[in-house]
Design a protein around this nucleic acid. Structure first.
Lengths: 143, 143
DNA sequence: CCGATTGGTTGCGATTTGCAACTCTTCGGA
DNA sequence: TCCGAAGAGTTGCAAATCGCAACCAATCGG
């Protein structure tokens, strides 16, 4: 399927590398639970939303749960889905820096005290910052 | 264009939220420079690659540079493109954790000493780990 | 000067997406 | 209990996108 089937980036892109999946996960993290929640927040076409919710469920990022009482079943993030938090955060921070004109308003991510979340930067074990120049991909042995 | 035009995640997804753009950036970080470099590493169709390279260039993630001597012009990451490093890293780490079967081999990211890059986790200003439950999106005022 | 390589472009068929209309179930109230 | 309104999809197209293969114009190497 992939040119390099051992690359985790390619695998991840296969799961969430389309126009909508990442935004669905974003909205789930932001509290969306029902079909119409997702539809209204993203503006996605309904048949595509059906497909994406099934796909994300199939990949183990979402589960359908019976609501506690009287309510309809809803979608919830799994552990794997919640683990995408770091991806959403870095993507958001990149967007804040590079996808808006100067002075153009945008939303920001804050912690429970209302403090803005600081930029997430890759570091080595000793805490020194890493860039794409100071890192490399170590390939596994191919039998 | 977007349901919420102030969301940086949506803006970022507009730029790199398709099947190929992120993989092109990944390969650029891994040393790809020429059209055929990208084509061979990703396996993308050539007309789509043309389109994606132009789009990424238009969004300011890539530039075409004159090669130092005698060689043809090549593509290079801009500052904004290199700044996607954190996104690629978190996506890679998520893929390592959730997109492979147990025992299935995959490549890993190492620093210049060959040490594996530790997981990148969102933290508050005081260094405490953050999750999607302990953060929220602060919207800007809409006129 | 010739053939191979690079960096595309063009045409066309196959997928995928979006929109609108329709269905089926469930919920809330009179 | 019955009615109307949502909620959660499904179905049927029309339009946009993608992938493949063929073609083309510059280099480049010998």
């Amino acid at each position: 399927m992939w040119t390099d089937p051992t690359c985790p980036v390619a695998r991840a892109a296969d799961v969430i590398g389309d126009r909508w999946s990442l935004l669905i996960v974003r909205d789930a993290m932001d509290g969306a639970r029902s079909f119409t929640d997702f539809q209204q927040r993203t503006g996605i076409a309904r048949n595509i939303l059906t497909d994406r919710l099934r796909r994300l469920t199939g990949h183990g990022l979402l589960v359908q749960v019976e609501a506690p009482s009287g309510k309809r079943r809803q979608y919830a993030l799994t552990e794997a889905g919640r683990d995408l938090f770091a991806v959403i955060v870095t993507l958001r921070q990149w967007g804040e820096r590079h996808a808006f004109e100067a002075g153009e308003p945008h939303s920001v991510l804050v912690d429970e005290h209302g403090t803005v979340v600081p930029p997430l930067v890759p570091t080595a074990s000793d805490g020194s910052p890493l860039t794409c120049e100071t890192t490399s991909v170590r390939k596994v042995a191919q039998p």
